[in-house]
Write a protein that binds this DNA or RNA. Structure first.
Lengths: 252, 252
DNA sequence: GCAATAGTGTCTATGAGACAGTATAGC
DNA sequence: GCTATACTGTCTCATAGACACTATTGC
């Protein structure tokens, strides 16, 4: 193999003075509700994609990091405080929401107004933190259309809605990322309250992976993982034998 | 939980006219040589970080996608043609180099000249494709300093060199990504020539993971995976019993 | 008591690791 | 013949799945 092109002069590494792309962050806010994986979306009030649903997002300010921008979007658009993890440097904090960078989308033409590069994040939120959802925001059920690399959104009555920009692709990558990470990280706990039963934890896994899991081996694996701390307490008002409540051991 | 901040007005989603960050791509070009994972780096010829070693990179042009920019960097700075994979939509092509988006780095201050957001990619290259390396480019051995989330670079004589910008962190994320993906994807084949022995394949895994693997179970797992196609040919000039050569079945 | 789930114990199938034994190249 | 590795076969151990059995709640 030979060097096909002349080597680019180093001078070209100087930033261009014009024609810079805009940079945004978009945040996929995921939760589990009604037995489904759901995402919080915002109804657009202007062109393009007027009245389409879109990911909460915003432009990256010149002095803020990408993570700070994503946390700001979480705070301003969903009233949530975030905690940063992911990318091999899982950070811990006291905040209730798990946040991790997802992927960066930059196809020219993805925003008809001009060149916009979007650094996508995804957040995992316990459903109880999304009680009060204001006007023009809504939680949608998600359906991954694997062959096409995009997701579709539905309301509680199975009515499908339209997504703005390439946000269907971004949602698809988010779903696939969460599914993948479920296998080798403790990401599932982020969608549950502080105390939970093994049945509830298994439901989380089954909902996200969209398949039944073996109850016995799920119990064994979870209890053997050392990630769970028994509380000694039992759930209440079940109509059947109450299960023990466990806590997630963040240290492990 | 309540909505702590007023909802950001939608007007704020308009792109800012000034103070836009610059966007670059940096490419971690990885190969295996001399039994080590190595990266191709470029010696800087100007301030800041004069004479430090840096990842090959360049500014994203206003009409090109991020992938196109990364492919251009590969072509112009390493004479390589790329093939795009990754992020749940593994695309295949006829090109010899595997390329996948890694992570986006945007901390303010990471480039003292101004706000620069870098979308990092990584490429896996068979060593024979990196024979002629021109002046001011060099392959370095890598050492991951796990606790600090960065990698260090060494030449063949174990002399350590300095990395520019946050490129040590980017290298660290790349190493960790490759290690991770080795477990659940067929990424290891990208670092080998078209035909290879099981021993050579195992060496790839051991070099990247930095640990000895069990030979018997490695053979069994690989042969059972359906990813290998026996060629019937044997390697030559070994000094010991020659092993069969296999090919990677891209379709599977 | 009945329904529904929690939790325990055990059997089996599968895959990984360990190791023995045979095969084949260069020297 | 010697050395180094390829390749085959077998045993053991750990884990996952399956299933049987008992326990505990609300009704």
């Amino acid at each position: 193999m030979t060097w096909r092109d002349p080597i680019e002069p180093f001078e070209k590494r100087e930033p261009p003075r014009f024609d810079r792309p805009s940079v945004t962050v978009d945040v996929v806010i995921l939760t589990l509700r009604e037995g489904h994986l759901q995402a919080l979306l915002v109804k657009r009030k202007e062109h393009p994609f007027l009245n389409y649903w879109s990911l909460p997002g915003g432009f990256v300010q010149i002095n803020e990091s990408l993570e700070e921008a994503a946390l700001r979007v979480l705070r301003q658009k969903a009233g949530l405080e975030g905690r940063v993890g992911g990318a091999g440097r899982e950070g811990l904090g006291q905040h209730p929401v798990y946040l991790e960078q997802l992927y960066t989308f930059g196809r020219p033409g993805r925003d008809p107004r001009g060149r916009v590069i979007s650094v996508a994040y995804y957040a995992l939120v316990e459903a109880s933190h999304l009680q009060e959802i204001p006007e023009e925001r809504m939680l949608f059920r998600l359906r991954l259309v694997e062959e096409e690399g995009r997701a579709e959104i539905f309301d509680g009555k199975h009515k499908r809605y339209s997504l703005a920009f390439d946000h269907g692709e971004i949602l698809a990558v988010a779903i696939q990322r969460v599914r993948g990470k479920l296998g080798y990280t403790a990401i599932g706990f982020e969608l549950l309250p502080e105390r939970f039963t093994l049945r509830e934890l298994q439901r989380v896994y089954e909902t996200i992976l969209q398949k039944k899991l073996n109850k016995d081996s799920f119990r064994r694996k979870m209890l053997a993982s050392g990630l769970l701390q028994a509380t000694g307490e039992l759930e209440k008002g079940t109509g059947f034998r109450p299960a023990e409540l466990y806590r997630f051991r963040r240290e492990a």
